[in-house]
């Protein structure tokens, strides 16, 4: 009797486990399929004209703004992120009080919701520093947001570099700085790069942190102090107007393709990390 009951229980849990696994992937495919189905019919050449008008609802300016926004925020976040990781792994003694505080604040930063970043960016960069609604305000806000991501992946990549590398370099008479730049950082490059690509994904998909920092102007920005909307903000604006939902879904398709590309690239780069230290 109990054996039979146990068998049934096993069956039920087998079904639940397999079911949930399959459901997760079906949900993903359904979302992608749905967005493609809704958006692809609206992809026309006029969506890619360089100037946005209320007739063509072009996404091209937003796409260019997205690229500018990504480059600017990376330009700020990468030096800070990588250098702080260098300090934490190569210079600071572990257990150091400063290191502990840095870890706590980094974790805090990574938990802050994007709308709170948006509020802060609006209060500090837009109003206090008087940069106005601008691509610069947006980029710096996003740079703070992706800082923990770049820090963590750089730190992981740096600490995965075997100590033999450092000892060998010191043994040959190189100084600490030289060892860091010529030996350790190059060896950790793929891991750092994979983290940076993930950060690109965050920037590309971000909306809430940008609406009140970089604003929603739909043209190509002509200076860092000009307002501009990224693709994600463009989509949100279209949904608010409610007149061009089809174009909104078409933009979603473009955004989705970007994100899938970014994820694939990150996975591809991350795969190469294992090679270092083994055969070199």
């Amino acid at each position: 009797m109990t054996i039979k009951k146990n068998k049934i229980k096993e069956k039920i849990f087998a079904i639940l486990t397999w079911g949930a696994g399959i459901l997760s992937i079906v949900v993903l495919l359904y979302i992608i399929g749905f967005i493609l189905y809704k958006g692809v019919p609206y992809i026309k050449p006029s969506l890619f004209s360089l100037k946005y008008t209320s007739e063509n609802v072009s996404l091209m300016p937003a796409l260019i703004s997205t690229i500018i926004m990504t480059l600017m925020s990376l330009l700020i976040a990468i030096p800070f992120g990588v250098f702080s990781a260098v300090f934490l792994t190569e210079y600071a003694k572990s257990g150091n009080r400063f290191v502990k505080i840095v870890r706590v604040t980094t974790e805090t930063l990574s938990g802050i919701p994007s709308i709170v970043y948006g509020l802060f960016g609006m209060l500090f960069f837009v109003t206090f520093l008087n940069w106005g609604f601008s691509i610069l305000s947006g980029a710096v806000t996003l740079a703070i947001m992706i800082l923990p991501l770049i820090m963590r992946s750089s730190e992981e990549a740096l600490s995965a570099v075997p100590d033999v590398f450092r000892e060998g370099s010191f043994g040959l008479g190189a100084g600490k700085l030289r060892t860091v730049f010529k030996i350790v950082l190059p060896a950790a490059a793929p891991g750092i790069f994979a983290g940076i690509i993930l950060a690109v994904g965050r920037v590309v998909g971000e909306t809430a942190a940008l609406i009140y920092t970089s604003g929603t102007v739909a043209q190509i920005p002509d200076s860092p102090f000009a307002s501009a909307r990224t693709l994600a903000v463009h989509m949100y604006s279209l949904s608010g107007e409610g007149l061009h939902m089809g174009e909104g879904y078409a933009t979603a398709v473009v955004l989705l393709v970007l994100v899938i590309g970014i994820n694939a690239l990150s996975a591809f780069v991350a795969k190469r990390i294992g090679g270092y230290g083994k055969d070199k």
Partner: peptide, 10 residues
Amino acid sequence: GIPSVVYGFF
């Protein structure tokens, strides 16, 4: 990785 606006549209 899917942006939250895309989830919103979905």
